[in-house]
Design a protein around this nucleic acid. Sequence first.
DNA 1: TCTGGGGTCCTAGGACCC
DNA 2: TCTGGGGTCCTAGGACCC
Length: 431
Amino acid sequence: MFISDLLDIRIMYALVDCNNFFVSCERVFRPQLEGKAVVVLSNNDGCVVARSNESKAMGIKMGTPFYQVRDMVKAGRLIACSSNYTMYGDLSSRVMSILAEAVPRIEIYSIDEAFLCMDGMSPEKIEGISRELVAKVRKWVGIPVSIGIAPTKTLAKIASHFAKKYPGYRGVCRIDSEEKRLKALSLTPIREVWGVGRKLSVSMEQKGIRTALDYVQRPEEWIRKNYMLHGVRTWLELRGQVCVEEELPEKRKSICTSRSFPGMITDRAEIAARVADFAAKCAQKLREEHSAALQVDVVLYTNRFRDDLPQYFPCASVRLPVAASNTQEIVSAALNGFDTIYRSDYQYKKAGVTVSDLVDADAVQASLFDYDIDRRRKQDRLSEVMDRVNAGGHNLVRLAAQRSGDYTDGIRSDYRSRRYSTSLDEVIEIR
DNA sequence: TCTGGGGTCCTAGGACCC
DNA sequence: TCTGGGGTCCTAGGACCC
């Protein structure tokens, strides 16, 4: 039982993938976008990060700079939405809780994807549950999803592509026999395989590997020699043997906040204030995770697309004597780092702050030479108060070093929809 | 004029030690 | 002038993901 023509299907994964997620979210609250060519833009309305089927069919690629499609928007052939990550996160958790109720175990992989573990169930039963979920998520949240079912995560990804691409599957596709596996691999270009990105796919195509089937037909030793550990893992997964098994760790290992500026900036104080904002945001995320950081990195970027201007991408690393998560300490470390790398003869386009070397906030190792322990405790308490006041994403309280608005203030979002699923903005807009 | 943001893992190579 | 070899640890950078 559960061995289908030599494909072991005792372990089965169902990958649930929300179709064109950000676009689908916008459509939940603006049904008039249904059937239209729609794109969602990144911060600053910089480039395209999500596309509806209609805009994909027009040939618009992921990551296209917005100015290249602006004419279509003006001509009324394309609708653009500025991104609204708060709303997407909210709809995502609604989808995930429906999925979590239906199966014994779920691994949330990203904002729009989750693996459901269906071990020990018959393929028919798994498909039944999956079809119910497709209908339920559509009806209760309004988001269309596709589900791919297979004995490994890499194969489940491929199955979900088929489920999404061919309407005949009605949203659910399973790879549960050797015959289906080989058929699916032969129809999958190597560049579409999970774990094979642009660089690798070019290298593979040069070696005559066009499809996933070409890849699995190479000997293991050849794969190991050319593509090392990562390549062997993909090779085994495509053959039906589970390798990508580890659950994602609950806590992140680093936290980063970075933004491009609407234009280029040289002024020291203006950039420092933004760096302070990013650092404050990192500190807030640290506290949400109940973590503390030992290292703070600050990065500056000039505009990499301007060949005519001098380029400068410095990074400063600051070690903290004791792991910290309070806003004052993280901001002050970031500003110290900034001072060591800032130079007034460049035009900057972007900056970022990363906190890393994270430890659990309860397990912070007090340093023997921590003479500042009282000050630290006061700062920690102040940060707690700031979190309570700022709860809900509205930065009413901030340090003097920060800018006089939210850390996302000043970024362009000309096509923003209202924040339907969250509260305060709605109140302000109605008033 | 205009070109995203936030993560993870792996590997190569240097530093260091014996 | 000659100038080992092998192990470990750390970091920077590259590749990937969504």
